[in-house]
Design a protein around this nucleic acid. Structure first.
Lengths: 155, 155
DNA sequence: GGCTTGATGCAAATTGATTGCATTCGCGAG
DNA sequence: CTCGCGAATGCAATCAATTTGCATCAAGCC
């Protein structure tokens, strides 16, 4: 996965109070584990797998199952998006973070059918034709797009 | 997953000799297990998971691991495509079957982010803009497209 | 027919995800 | 501040889908 686009400078880490506000305003309790997970997602700007999150937070005493549950809770609350890059590993990225935080903008992904590598395509836009029969969210442009094919290395 | 489009009448099952030709011309040995897997894929016109294939062929004495290996071999040989409907279960469908056989035409899929349900969108076409930076296969239209969002039931 | 190498059957292992249950803890009400 | 309720956690285990090891069998070529 290569991010080729230029990024603005990273904002400073969000405050504890801001993270707590975000959790509570989403109907979740502010717990140490959740703050750690959410804080980590604010620091990293790529999708992270559960295993990666555990690697990063496990030696702070956070339990693997708890991290998993919290990722799912955050996804259910709409703070985090669960995403699939084609290799059958769920990854989690911030959708709605603390005010001023950088999070992943919605953009198409390309996934290689051979090596499973993913490429973000933030500059790509699509025009759809013939959407009759598709779910409403397609017509309302509330969709994410994944393109699959062979990457330049595998083709 | 709903197929709303009209289908032509189903062709008769392929002959044993035709299946054998297909295997051998693809560099694979013609074995009983492979013939069974391939024959089944010719009979069913939807993507089938490994588990489904085993359910269908297991009581004929075919081993689960063998069915798996053969599905992977057939996918590698380009006879079968491995596909993902969003629920993290690989499914296999015929790409290049016996002459005269019906197989799945390439078309976009919609996958619901909530329930995981998939919808085929054979009528949908896309126009891409801003493909600079994308892998070459995108520009060459050698891609498959997956749209993700909430289906009408979940939204 | 003999031989080579790929395929199979059987069993087990791996990976990613998910759950059960006893205990702990966040938070709101009084 | 205290208490109680229900949510969250830690620990261990389980589950689902996939994948692999190895001895034996068999397809196919010479």
């Amino acid at each position: 996965m290569k991010h080729a686009s230029a990024h603005a400078p990273l904002p400073s880490p969000p405050s504890l109070a801001a993270l707590q506000d975000l959790l509570r305003s989403s109907g979740l309790r502010s717990t140490a584990a959740r703050l750690a997970v959410l804080g980590y997602l604010h620091e990293t700007h790529t999708p992270n797998s559960h295993a990666q999150m555990f690697d990063a937070l496990g030696d702070r005493g956070f339990d693997r199952a708890t991290i998993y549950r919290n990722l799912m809770d955050l996804a259910e609350a709409g703070i985090v998006r669960r995403t699939d890059l084609g290799d059958h590993v769920w990854r989690f990225e911030l959708v709605r973070g603390v005010a001023g935080s950088r999070h992943t903008e919605e953009h198409p992904h390309f996934v290689c059918l051979d090596c499973g590598g993913g490429v973000c395509l933030p500059g790509l836009s699509l025009e759809l034709h013939g959407i009759g029969g598709a779910p409403r969210s397609v017509g309302e442009n509330k969709i994410t797009v994944q393109l699959k094919g062979l990457c330049d290395n595998c083709s």
